Simulated scan of single mutants.
Amino acid sequence: MNEVKESLRNLEQTYKLFQQQQITFITALEHTRENAHDKIRPVSSIGQVQTYMDHYCNNATDRRILLMFLNICCELSKLCQKLEYLHPGNNVTNSILETCKTLVSHSNDLSTIRATYPHDVVNHLSCDEARNHYGGLVSLIPIKLPRDMLRQQSVSFQSAGDSPKRTHRAVVSKERAPAPLGQPPASQTAATQTAVSYRDSLQQEIKQNPEKHPAGAGRKLCKILNGPWKPPGRHAF
């Protein structure tokens, strides 16, 4: 999951640089559309941008900014694949993931999508450009960066990862929980039962064969097994 977070951070930094060059990006699209004699229809898909760059781009500045856009889209697609591979997610995250995968498909029609508050990229376009040519294209990356999906996936990961710890803590807590008042812990009860059983069998042996054991051996044995006498009260257990 850390690798995914790092990839997202890198993407966001790259997008900040791209965002500062939106005018350069729109200019490059204008140049390539003109070279392709394709000034009527809107630029509505990633595949269309790829075609413009591959076949109708005549200068290094236009190629650089178009390539930056395509690389960001490619990295977003890879990020979706990583998230899908790392964790199956739930109904919410899977739905977001499918939407993201659809958005970055090269053939997907982006002409109707628009980034809204807090994104203001569309406002940097002229009215004609925003409505008819590039509104969907410049809206793609800001609404695509899957911060919400990543956060929910992260929570899901943490929940899955913490389950064994919670189970372990529950077991430890149960083991360390104090016994009810007047009742010794389970481990002490088992030890006491073993000592009593051993004491009884040894006392029986002393009764049957008194010549093998010195006088008072039984009393000494009981004192050793039972511990020193304690007065009744809160220290009795």
Results as ranks from 00 to 15, higher is better:
residue 12 E to S: 10
residue 15 Y to R: 02
residue 112 T to V: 15
residue 11 L to T: 06
residue 39 K to D: 00
residue 93 T to N: 09
residue 132 N to P: 03
residue 66 L to H: 03
residue 68 M to H: 15
residue 66 L to S: 08
residue 69 F to M: 06
residue 62 D to E: 09
residue 40 I to D: 10
residue 54 D to P: 06
residue 69 F to G: 04
residue 24 T to S: 14
residue 134 Y to L: 04
residue 11 L to D: 13
residue 48 Q to A: 12
residue 68 M to Q: 15
residue 31 H to P: 01
residue 65 I to V: 15
residue 41 R to I: 12
residue 108 N to G: 02
residue 37 H to G: 05
residue 65 I to W: 05
residue 130 A to S: 15
residue 68 M to Y: 12
residue 100 C to M: 11
residue 93 T to C: 07
residue 89 G to T: 10
residue 129 E to V: 03
residue 32 T to Y: 01
residue 137 L to N: 02
residue 26 I to N: 05
residue 133 H to A: 09
residue 70 L to Y: 13
residue 96 I to S: 11
residue 122 V to Q: 04
residue 116 T to W: 02
residue 115 A to P: 09
residue 125 L to A: 12
residue 39 K to W: 00
residue 119 H to V: 07
residue 22 Q to N: 06
residue 54 D to S: 14
residue 71 N to S: 08
residue 50 Q to H: 12
residue 108 N to R: 13
residue 58 N to F: 11
residue 120 D to G: 08
residue 61 T to V: 12
residue 84 E to L: 09
residue 141 I to M: 01
residue 113 I to V: 12
residue 21 Q to F: 04
residue 141 I to A: 01
residue 105 S to G: 10
residue 41 R to M: 15
residue 135 G to S: 12
residue 107 S to F: 12
residue 77 S to L: 09
residue 46 I to S: 09
residue 109 D to G: 06
residue 129 E to H: 12
residue 127 C to D: 13
residue 38 D to Q: 10
residue 121 V to G: 02
residue 52 Y to I: 08
residue 116 T to Y: 04
residue 66 L to A: 06
residue 78 K to T: 05
residue 56 Y to E: 01
residue 49 V to R: 03
residue 120 D to S: 07
residue 65 I to S: 07
residue 138 V to E: 01
residue 114 R to F: 04
residue 106 H to S: 09
residue 97 L to I: 09
residue 68 M to L: 11
residue 52 Y to W: 10
residue 32 T to R: 01
residue 45 S to P: 05
residue 78 K to Q: 11
residue 59 N to A: 05
residue 87 H to T: 10
residue 102 T to I: 11
residue 15 Y to L: 06
residue 135 G to M: 09
residue 61 T to Y: 08
residue 59 N to V: 02
residue 26 I to V: 15
residue 72 I to V: 12
residue 40 I to R: 07
residue 50 Q to G: 07
residue 91 N to E: 14
residue 75 E to I: 03
residue 129 E to F: 02
